[in-house]
Nucleic acid binder design. Structure first.
Length: 657
RNA sequence: GCGCCCGUGGCGCAACUGGAUAGCGCAUCGGUCUUCGGAACCGAGGGUUGCAGGUUCGAAUCCUGCCGGGCGUGCCA
């Protein structure tokens, strides 16, 4: 049951009486009202209809109101302003709906009558590299979409398209062959491989930095000269010209800042090696390490048996490492089919696209071209190697063959927009026209310097460290709060448990509640906030409900069976009850555009209304037994809605905190 | 150069896709504990939605032009 759906249903006949043809777009103009003083819902269709029918909008509104049969749900509709039809839901109708929701373990949220099959491609880290904050958004958003779609009755296939076939394996293969500590590897493969990755990466960086540093110095010199020239330029007096010069100057200055910081970073990497006797020796022994790493990667791809065997050995360790983090985040995938899985399909895919004239050769590379775009999508390099785009096409082909999805969602950073536009267009030309391809894009997580957050030795935090910090901070708050109670009620073990859940929840909520496309600067304060619009606020509301039941030694099921009714006599009760019934609308809003923040907004408002209710309406000490039971049922509904809603976001609750 | 995205109180973000007096969280100031958990509640201040036009009953939202910022842009993923 959705109130909105019910209201829209009632408007169909009256609207058809007023206009010919389809009324769907008019029905969409029925929506929740913003200012509660006008009512609960409003229908805005009379204004455009007035225009179309060349009648007074208010007269059209009146005709609709005269024709509608809605008295059981609403008070008599009111026509206001230019032609708004304002609807206020009747309390007795809300009470009946709440009773139904109370008796339903799905809180009255019905499954979709038209289930679709969704493949959701999310998380997709490169294994064998440490995971960092940049990975968290895709994982958390994708996970929330999986849960929500599934709850609504859709078929969902969550697929983690891990990077398990890239250069990082060339690095650890090379490292393993040349300076592995076999004993350490036997002891703990994950740690040893991580060490090898870091070491080889550092050496490769060193080599690159040595090459880049002189170039950067030259570049800085050139920019400085350019800036001097731009500053000395005689203004022509033309306003436009002046602005142009000023803009160019600003750009040069920002380039200079970038170049200097790049140089500083390169020098830092160089001295990190050269100040370390052991590493410096290694660096000299492996002077051409970058080329060697590429060669190892190429050999792996070409089928070199030694490298394949090493890769097969390493992969489970890498998998184990990322699984540890997914375990902490509570994220599970239906499939983990990485790049390597599609390796054998790549050549046939290119051949097929070429045969169908979708791809053609250009500058010795195999390309797909698009009208109005000068950049093609390259699916095979001139050296014969395949690319990201090729794998993505093979992946689409596999998913279509295997699951015939109605939609494939890619939860990926918005910087890849062009890639996905081209990919989707190619897939359509290739014949996959019945599938909806969606790039569910999100903004980049930036570091304090305003540049994309990246792992750099020492100066940034990996995902593990971030999770630890979140939990540590939550633990401090949990302990402080518990200590402040008259008698603290959590054991050390319980405190750890609560801190883990509250800390991880805060982290997830920071991403889910702010799902806009714009980038944001990473900040501990933001990600670990435990006050205001945070998961903690909802968890706290939930724990307070549970506390009421514990205090009063209440068995909810017993009250439900007794046939006790929910009565909305206080405004705070009514506001809360209405919010409870709007849960399904929030879920619909979420999947409409795949925006989990619709759910966080809803849950925050629900929890807010509960807090108001909690302050104004005594439950256990209610005036009458009937009122007490009614309020207990309302509390139970709120708690279940909070718990269910949070669970769809991948966030757990605790009974005590 | 071309393409895409963004600009909303001091900061961070909403606004149900064109609806009524633009909301919320931090922060600031004031109030609420003899009553179920103060991780709470109630209230106040703070805005020409970057600027200028246009479209219409009605614009933060759509169109045009500026200003400012970000991202992408043939052999990375």
């Amino acid at each position: 049951m959705s109130i909105l759906a019910e209201l829209r249903q009632r408007f169909v006949a009256p609207l058809q009486a007023v206009v010919d043809g389809e009324v769907d777009t008019l029905l969409e103009m029925i929506k929740p009202i913003q200012d509660p003083k006008f009512g609960d819902y409003q229908a805005n269709c009379a204004m455009p209809l007035g225009k179309r029918l060349e009648q007074q909008p208010r007269a059209v509104a009146q005709r609709i109101v005269d024709a509608i049969d809605i008295g059981d749900i609403c008070d008599p509709p009111e026509i206001a302003g230019p032609g708004f039809i304002n609807l206020r839901i009747r309390d007795d109708w809300l009470e009946v709906q709440l009773a139904a929701a109370s008796a339903d373990d799905r809180l009255g949220v019905s499954r979709t009558p038209t289930p679709s099959t969704y493949v959701i491609d999310y998380s997709a880290p490169n294994v064998a590299k440490p995971m960092h904050v940049g990975h968290i958004r895709s994982s958390v958003i994708g996970d929330a979409l999986c849960h929500t779609l599934r709850f609504l009755g859709h078929q969902v296939i969550g697929d983690n398209h891990i990077g398990d076939w890239g250069t990082q394996f060339g690095m650890i293969i090379y490292g393993f062959k040349h300076f592995a500590d076999r004993a350490a590897y036997e002891e703990n493969a994950v740690d040893e491989l991580a060490r090898l990755y870091r070491a080889v990466n550092q050496l490769v960086d060193y080599q690159r930095s040595r090459g880049a540093a002189p170039q950067l110095e030259r570049q800085i010199f050139q920019i400085e000269e350019q800036i001097a020239e731009q500053r000395g330029a005689e203004p022509t007096g033309d306003k436009k010209e002046k602005k142009k010069i000023a803009k160019a100057l600003r750009r040069s200055e920002s380039q200079l800042v970038d170049a200097r910081s790049n140089l500083a970073a390169a020098q830092k990497r160089i001295s990190a090696i050269e100040d370390d006797g052991e590493l410096f020796t290694l660096a000299q022994q492996h002077a051409d390490i970058a080329e060697s790493v590429l060669a190892e990667t190429a050999a792996l791809h070409a089928g070199d048996e030694t490298n394949r065997e090493l890769w097969r050995q390493f992969l489970p360790a890498c998998q184990k490492d990322i699984d540890r983090i997914y375990g902490r985040l509570g994220i599970r995938f239906d499939h983990t089919l990485g790049e390597s899985f599609y390796h054998d399909r790549l050549a046939p895919v290119v051949a097929d696209l070429r045969r169908k004239d979708i791809a053609r050769e250009s500058d010795d590379a195999m390309c797909v071209f698009f009208d109005g775009q000068d950049v093609p999508m390259i699916i095979q390099k001139k050296d014969g190697a395949f690319l990201y785009a090729t794998t993505d096409l093979a992946t689409i082909q596999y998913r279509e063959e295997t699951w015939s999805p109605d939609a494939i969602l890619y939860v990926v950073d918005h910087r890849q927009s062009l890639h996905f536009e081209q990919l989707f267009e190619t897939a359509r030309r290739w014949g996959f026209t019945d599938t909806q391809f969606v790039h569910v894009k999100f903004g980049t997580v930036l570091g304090n310097d305003g540049r994309p957050f990246k792992t750099r030795e020492g100066d940034t935090v990996g995902l593990d460290g971030l999770l630890d910090e979140a939990v540590r901070k939550a633990h401090a708050v949990v302990s402080e709060n518990d200590d402040a109670k008259q008698a603290s009620e959590l054991s050390a073990e319980q405190r750890n448990h609560v801190a883990e859940i509250v800390g991880i929840a805060a982290l997830k909520y920071a991403d889910l509640s702010q799902n806009r496309e714009s980038d944001y600067v990473f900040s501990y304060d933001k990600m670990l906030a435990l006050r205001g619009n945070t998961a903690t606020y909802m968890q706290y509301a939930y724990a307070r409900v549970k506390n009421i039941f514990a205090r009063g030694d209440i068995e909810v099921e017993k009250i439900k069976r007794s046939g006790a009714a929910i009565r909305l006599s206080d405004p705070a009760e009514r506001a809360l009850g209405l919010a409870v019934l709007q849960f399904s609308e929030a879920l619909d809003d979420c999947i409409e555009d795949f925006r989990p923040n619709q759910i966080t907004d809803y849950l925050f408002e629900l929890a807010e209304r509960y807090s108001t209710f909690y302050n104004q309406c005594p439950v256990l000490k209610a005036d009458t037994e009937a009122e007490r039971e009614s309020r207990l049922l309302l509390c139970d509904l709120t708690a279940r809605t909070l718990k269910t809603g949070l669970s769809l976001l991948g966030i757990e609750v605790v009974e005590k905190m």
